[in-house]
Design a binder for these strands. Sequence first.
DNA 1: TTGAAAGCGCTAACAA
DNA 2: TTGTTAGCGCTTTCAA
Lengths: 401, 401
Amino acid sequence: MKHCWHRFSQVFFAVIGSGRETTANTVEPQGRGVAADGNARGSSGRGQVTITDVARLAGVSPGTASKALNGRGGISPDTTQRVRQAADRLGYQPNALARGLLTGRSCTVGLITTDSFGRFSIPVMQGAEDALGPGSMSVFLCDSRDDRIREQHYLRTLLERRVDGIIVTGRRQDPREPVGSGLPVPVVYAMTQSTGPADLSLVPDDMQGGGLAVGHLLSTGRTRIGHVTGPLRFAASRLRAHGAEAALAETGLAMAGGGPLYGEWTEEWGRQATDALLRSAPDVDAIFCGNDQIARGAADAVRDTGRSVPDDVALVGFDNWEVIATACRPPLTTVDMNLRELGRTAAERLLAAINGQFAAGVQRLPCSLVLRESSRPRQPSALRPGLLADGPPPWPARPAD
Amino acid sequence: MKHCWHRFSQVFFAVIGSGRETTANTVEPQGRGVAADGNARGSSGRGQVTITDVARLAGVSPGTASKALNGRGGISPDTTQRVRQAADRLGYQPNALARGLLTGRSCTVGLITTDSFGRFSIPVMQGAEDALGPGSMSVFLCDSRDDRIREQHYLRTLLERRVDGIIVTGRRQDPREPVGSGLPVPVVYAMTQSTGPADLSLVPDDMQGGGLAVGHLLSTGRTRIGHVTGPLRFAASRLRAHGAEAALAETGLAMAGGGPLYGEWTEEWGRQATDALLRSAPDVDAIFCGNDQIARGAADAVRDTGRSVPDDVALVGFDNWEVIATACRPPLTTVDMNLRELGRTAAERLLAAINGQFAAGVQRLPCSLVLRESSRPRQPSALRPGLLADGPPPWPARPAD
DNA sequence: TTGAAAGCGCTAACAA
DNA sequence: TTGTTAGCGCTTTCAA
């Protein structure tokens, strides 16, 4: 802790160290100061310590104090030391507003989330904050809730506050209109796409993620792989399915069940679809699910038919939504979109843009795989007698559980 | 949309309307302006339009323009109109930094989350943003991740940015040290408690929530009510249990199973404990669970013994974590801590404090109940033959599972 | 090596 | 009703 912010310090206007002494109650040249302020506070007027106060206590001019504190310009070590001490004593905190006004850089960025702290925007925001917060950048939070009016309101206030840049996050979906055009600051879209050709958008690579899931299942020896996923109207569903099908085709395999089963992003649908799939293609030995909720429903459905996950049917989900994936029985192998990393990258791209390094287009960031029980390679068949044999499956139509 | 922010407007320095005409390339009295700026932008120097630009275009002084735009001081309707038009044309946006510097109010607040976008802090943040964002207050987001070093870093930058106040959110738990002492701005703690006696902390009323859950179960006719909850070391566990026990005692009942079963906040524990409870007290007709995950585990365990939820055993959870509560089979009745409301309240209290209305102490905000299937009143016994009869329960000790 | 002065963009007090 | 001036707190020339 470099500073302490006690507002009411005891020591004032006594010059620290030696050199030109200035006594406490000198009348300030500027005509401002504590004179009229009976209250023993080390500040002029507004109650916060200013650099003038520091300078006066150190017995130097404000300009010199500024240079000393910022390490700019040739200031003697002795003076620097005195100024630093004075600043510490008074609990000086530079006024970022004044600095920003002067330098034209506020060192702030706006973060507009269209998704109101949704499951996808949160990790993105977190990643962005990771990259910005610990540095000198502060982040303005704006929750536009997919409302263009709100969005414009926030955009306006952000620009009024002279942010140096803006990040827009969403829940992906279809490309969206740019948040504004001809803006005086750079904008990066994360987990959402702008239709503006000059804009930079960062999204996860769903197709690669789908391929990753299926590739993994293939590598563990599964060959009759089905796919249960969300609504067809979602680009995410389609891309993941394409990725999955491409990976299968590469090995000369077709998708079990005849193709992806499109439905809802719910456990309920996961159960239903899996149930149907196990009926229509009883030899299915793996299901790649479009998200973790579907996968969890699938796990329940598989178990309900007396089969085991992963030995009879392996499962892979998508999202790595921890609370779902780890509560699944068994814990779920799943594709992680690395959203936090995506947010971090967005922030870095924004910083680059602020420094003049622009980029444009849609960048797809790779997904990765999180391995858990649900796709564990099969146990040696000796341990599970009969289950790998040909012929009708050894389980009854539907036991009590 | 009142404004548009195209930076490069076409029309400049042609006085709008009638009255003192000023032509485009007048040399500005201040010596600044577009003269040296070949680029057709309606600004001086920094690339953003200033009030001086607006004033010049409207043919008035900056002071007058300011008053006109802010509706302060007696300005003729005609002039006001002209200034407004000029501002619109140029896409003028007041510089909030400059305004804040002058007025001493930045119209920003800091939001420090110690819980890194956790399940509890998110709705609180959302509520705070609800109350602040749409107004003139902007929110700085700071993710301290329970790290005091980070927290102090953020505190410092917030104070440097001259925020008007600070909200600190957490995941409740034990009281925490104040974020700082003698701070120049008010602080409100939400979903976390400060040990500072002069600080204001807002937390949900867990005891009342526990009472609410049990009261509801009693009102639906259940009398043999058990309680499965999280670790004993959590104040939340203890308070909820107390509330539940008090509600039971009021009706002269004791808790089924002999008392609360403390464990973990997981589905796994919910299953285990419920299993044990159903064995030790087979006539249990309701379980109040310390959170939704435990409740979901309980639902699975109840079902696994061949009993039905809610007809044989009713369930109530805690948290109203939608994804869990609605995916539960059947959907879960649960206690909602109204965290968003809590966040909103925190923001309102902060605004009050900024305006001089201080408060202190720990305020507990009421929880409410969200009714779903899992605690539906029993069906008439005719529809469920035998289940309400006396004697040994109709289900076997415990099927395979 | 230090000090003086100007000015970032805005508003508030005072003059005209 | 409008214009002028000063100054918020800071940094940055330019002079000393």
